[in-house]
Simulated scan of single mutants.
Amino acid sequence: MRIGIDVLALGELDRLHTRPWFRRFVYTADELALAESFGEGRTREFLAGRFAAKEAVLKVLGTGCGSGLTPRQIRVVRDGRSAPQVRLTGPAARRAAEIGVSGLTVSIAHKGEYVVAVALGHRHEDRADDPAAAGDAVTRLAGAALEEIAKRESAYDQRPE
C-alpha cells in the first residue's frame, strides 16, 4: 500500500484559478462543468479539494508533477453516493501499473479555510482487504490531519506578540 497526502489553504489557488491555462492543465472538462454548477464559494472549495486529491495521488505514484504526468490525467469523479473516486488516464495509468498500484482510494476533507486529501494506492495483494474499511481509514486520516492543523493554528494564534 502506498499513501499520499496534500493539505492546502483555499486561498492558495485563487489567483491560479483565474487563469484558463491552469484550469486546462489541472482539471478535466467534466470536473470543471460540475464545479461551475455550484455557487462561487462552493466552486472554490470543490476545485481546491480536487486539486489536493490529484496532488495526493501524484504522491502515491511517486512522481509529483513530473516525468510526463499532469494533474489532468487524474480524474476525480463521484460515485453513486457522491464519494470521490479516482480514474487514471495516459501516463498516470501507466505509472500506476509500473509500480503495481491496481486501485486508489481517496478522501477529501474541508475545515474552514483548509482542505486535505489522502490517497491510498492499493496493490493487487491488498485488494483482498475490505474496500469500505480502506475508505474509512483514509477518511479518518484526513480528519486527523485537519484536526492537527486546526490545533497548531489555534496555538499559533494564541502566542503573545
Results as ranks from 00 to 15, higher is better:
D6K: 01
D6C: 07
V7P: 06
L8S: 12
A9Q: 15
L10Y: 11
E12Q: 14
H17F: 15
R19M: 10
P20L: 10
A29N: 10
E31C: 06
A33H: 12
L34H: 10
G39T: 12
K54T: 02
K54D: 07
E55R: 07
E55D: 08
A56R: 00
L58V: 02
K59Y: 07
G62K: 00
G62F: 00
G68H: 03
G68Y: 03
P71Y: 00
I74C: 04
R75A: 14
V77C: 09
D79N: 15
G80C: 06
R81A: 10
A83L: 12
P84G: 04
P84Q: 07
R87I: 12
R87P: 01
R95D: 00
A96R: 00
V101Y: 05
V101G: 04
G103E: 12
L104H: 05
H110C: 06
H110E: 09
H110W: 11
K111Y: 07
K111F: 05
G112M: 10
E113G: 14
E113W: 06
Y114C: 13
Y114K: 11
V115E: 02
V116M: 08
A119F: 03
R127Y: 08
D130T: 10
D130M: 07
A133M: 11
A133D: 14
A133E: 15
A137H: 09
A137W: 05
A137N: 05
V138C: 13
V138G: 01
R140Y: 06
A142V: 04
A144C: 04
L146N: 01
L146E: 00
E147D: 15
E148I: 03
A150R: 13
Y156K: 14
